[in-house]
Simulated scan of single mutants.
Amino acid sequence: MAFKNLSLLTICLSLVLSSLSPISIASNNKRDVVPPETLCKSTVYPSYCKTLLANQNGTIFDYGRISVRKSLSQSRKFLNLVNSFLQDRSSFSLPTTRALEDCQFLAQQNFEYLSNALDNVGKASDDLPTTEAEDQQTMLSAALTNQETCLEGLQTTASDERVKSELLSSLSDDTKLHSVSLDLFIKGWVPEKKISTSWQPNGRHLGFRNGRLPLRMSNRVRAIYDSARGHGRKLLQDSSDSVLVNDIVVVSQDGSGNFTTINDAIAAAPNNSASSDGYFLIFVTGGVYQEYVSIAKNKKYLMMVGDGINQTIITGDHNVVDNFTTFNSATFGEQIKYTHIF
């Protein structure tokens, strides 16, 4: 199974970037005015950071806002550049056009992520609540992942050289900028205390116990879940610190479930659900599902559970040889956070 744009990847990337920053700023010193040189030497790209913040004088919050604002501006310019190429798509090969369409989609996501980040840092001059800080950190990390995905698509296709030269140059500079923005955000707004790994009311953290996930659900939902999993594989249920499941549907190729395809089950999930509602669980019984699964960003708080390793398999045959980009050969894609696949 291939994945694109998953939160796990973006969280891992943000952790890698933050681990490269040896200098920590205590919460009670974050409002102190510091020279850019002092702050920039602990970022991933010190020289670029110093150029970005040259002739500035402020706090970590001031510098962070400057960087995120610049990232947003550059994301808009990059999107406009991609759009300008696509207006003349008839002059490009099919692989180039598909790579540009991927970059367009990813650039639109980045503009949304960075707009959201700027709204948040513009209001806060102190640590954000832990879960909110993690959300924003994930979005800024996702912007970097999207840049890399766009870059990969352009490099692995026989793209028109004019497209490559203009877009690759912009991608290189923008990646440095977004990296600095992420680094400064972590230093300014992410609390220093360790983030909890147990499940919280907003649904971001799922707490496994001995390799199993405790779920809380009604008797009706529990009966469907246990029946779908088969005899001897009962639900681990705990009244405290367990994950709330509000509803369930079953996907089965033999027609014994609610749906025969995963995409149909996702379409049936509620739109823009709230964390207090709990998860919408999709149980996928054993079988080989030849489909390309895409989870739209308005499908929030989904949980997808399969029948086990080598039992539930999602596969497809898109590949670069047939003029599909790596991004669009993924059999499983999500545009949102708060989706969990097991």
Rank of each mutant, 00 (worst) to 15 (best):
residue 53 L to P: 00
residue 54 A to V: 10
residue 54 A to L: 07
residue 54 A to D: 15
residue 55 N to M: 07
residue 55 N to P: 01
residue 55 N to W: 00
residue 56 Q to H: 04
residue 56 Q to E: 13
residue 56 Q to P: 00
residue 57 N to S: 11
residue 57 N to M: 02
residue 57 N to P: 00
residue 57 N to H: 12
residue 59 T to I: 00
residue 60 I to C: 02
residue 60 I to V: 15
residue 60 I to H: 02
residue 61 F to D: 00
residue 61 F to A: 01
residue 61 F to G: 01
residue 62 D to G: 07
residue 62 D to Q: 12
residue 63 Y to R: 04
residue 63 Y to A: 09
residue 64 G to R: 04
residue 64 G to N: 01
residue 64 G to I: 06
residue 64 G to Q: 09
residue 65 R to G: 02
residue 66 I to Y: 10
residue 67 S to T: 09
residue 68 V to K: 05
residue 69 R to W: 09
residue 71 S to N: 13
residue 71 S to L: 02
residue 71 S to M: 04
residue 71 S to Y: 01
residue 72 L to G: 06
residue 73 S to N: 10
residue 75 S to V: 06
residue 75 S to N: 14
residue 76 R to G: 03
residue 76 R to Y: 11
residue 76 R to S: 11
residue 77 K to Y: 09
residue 77 K to G: 08
residue 77 K to N: 15
residue 78 F to L: 10
residue 78 F to N: 03
residue 80 N to K: 14
residue 80 N to T: 13
residue 81 L to R: 10
residue 81 L to F: 08
residue 81 L to C: 06
residue 81 L to S: 08
residue 82 V to A: 00
residue 83 N to D: 12
residue 86 L to Q: 05
residue 86 L to I: 05
residue 87 Q to A: 10
residue 89 R to V: 03
residue 89 R to K: 13
residue 89 R to W: 14
residue 89 R to Q: 12
residue 89 R to T: 10
residue 90 S to V: 04
residue 90 S to K: 13
residue 90 S to E: 13
residue 91 S to A: 12
residue 92 F to G: 05
residue 92 F to Y: 10
residue 92 F to A: 01
residue 92 F to S: 04
residue 92 F to Q: 04
residue 93 S to W: 09
residue 93 S to P: 03
residue 94 L to R: 15
residue 94 L to G: 09
residue 95 P to I: 03
residue 95 P to L: 03
residue 95 P to H: 05
residue 98 R to C: 06
residue 98 R to V: 07
residue 98 R to S: 09
residue 99 A to T: 12
residue 99 A to Q: 05
residue 100 L to C: 03
residue 100 L to A: 07
residue 102 D to M: 06
residue 102 D to E: 12
residue 103 C to N: 08
residue 103 C to M: 13
residue 105 F to M: 13
residue 105 F to I: 14
residue 105 F to T: 15
residue 107 A to R: 04
residue 108 Q to V: 02
residue 108 Q to C: 05
residue 108 Q to I: 00
residue 109 Q to I: 09
residue 109 Q to C: 05
residue 110 N to F: 07
residue 110 N to T: 06
residue 111 F to Y: 09
residue 112 E to I: 10
residue 112 E to P: 07
